[in-house]
Structures are given as C-alpha cells and as structure tokens.
C-alpha cells in the first residue's frame, strides 16, 4: 500500500522540514489565484458582466468577451474526477509519490491538484473532497485536497 507524503507539519519538538515542493509559476493573469493561496484562500475567476466562471484564468470571457473580471471565494468542495500515482521518475520536490488528481469543483470546473489523507487504493471517482493548503519552496502555498469531513 502506498502512504502518500504527509503535508502536515512535523511535531513541535522536531525542527519543521523545509518544504521541497516546487513553487507555483506565476503569470500576470493568474497572480490573483496564487496570492490568495499564500493567504490560505481558495478563489476563482468569474466574468464581472455575465458571471461565467473560467479556468485556467484568462483576460477575456469566452461567452460575452468582457475583460472585466471578479475574484470570488470558492466553497473549496469538489469531487475526484481522475487520479494517478507517478512512480518513475519521482516528481521533483517529492520524497514519495503523491496522488495527483483532477478535481471537479462544486463551481463547475476542474483543476489538477493532490489528494491526501486517503490511501491510493481507496480513492474512488466522485469521492467528495475539500481543499486545504500545502507549503512550497519560497514560502508559498498551493491548494490540495482530502476527503471531505462528514
């Protein structure tokens, strides 16, 4: 059985290990997402005129072509859509294979992230999950998921 890399901090007695996960690549149109993640907030981008969510972030709404956008706080709830375990080569920044998953968010779009607190063999399609944050190099954070508390 595979035990995924545990992102929770080490006990207070030990010196916390430095995060080795790659920091996000920040582009101008996605800066809002990563700045919010650094503060522990999970946000999305919506057209300020017609209200359409879009991901990956982009400067224009494909439905009404408005360039006005608003950043909104998301529920952080979603469902597992697909999931894998990269075995070889070990992904850069990980000591053990992480579960990589495509998550379908309650707001109606998907993103790639990691799944924790569930063994790989017990992951199921449609499993309800909730967001939390994992640290990266350079003092940043990225949103990751775990089974939703009942």
């Amino acid at each position: 059985m595979t035990v995924p890399n545990d992102p929770t901090p080490a006990p207070a007695s030990a010196a916390p290990p430095k995060p080795t996960r790659l920091a996000p690549i920040v582009t101008l149109d996605a800066k809002f997402f990563w700045e919010a993640a650094d503060k522990g907030e999970f946000v999305g981008e919506r057209c300020a005129d017609c209200g359409e969510f879009r991901f990956p972030p982009r400067p224009m709404c494909p439905r009404c072509h408005s360039v006005r956008r608003e950043v909104v706080k998301l529920s952080g709830h979603g469902k597992v859509y697909s999931w894998i375990l990269p075995r070889h080569p070990m992904p850069f920044g990980f000591k053990e294979s992480p579960i990589v998953a495509v998550i379908e968010l309650e707001e109606g779009y998907r993103l790639v992230s990691n799944l924790y607190e569930v063994p790989f063999e017990q992951v199921r399609a449609g499993m309800p999950v909730e967001v939390f944050f994992a640290p990266t190099m350079g003092n940043h954070q990225v949103p990751v998921f775990r089974p939703r508390a009942k």
Partner: peptide
C-alpha cells in the same frame, strides 16, 4: 496549462497523459 500541473508533481509527459 502545464504551469497548473508542475507544483503537484505532474511534471512528465507520462503523468500528463495518464490524468
């Protein structure tokens, strides 16, 4: 959109394909 994969350990063509 690969930049939405890298920090999560999806860093090779094989992982991108597999998802």
């Amino acid at each position: 959109s690969l930049l939405w994969c890298m920090p999560f350990g999806a860093q090779t063509p094989a992982t991108w394909e597999s998802l």
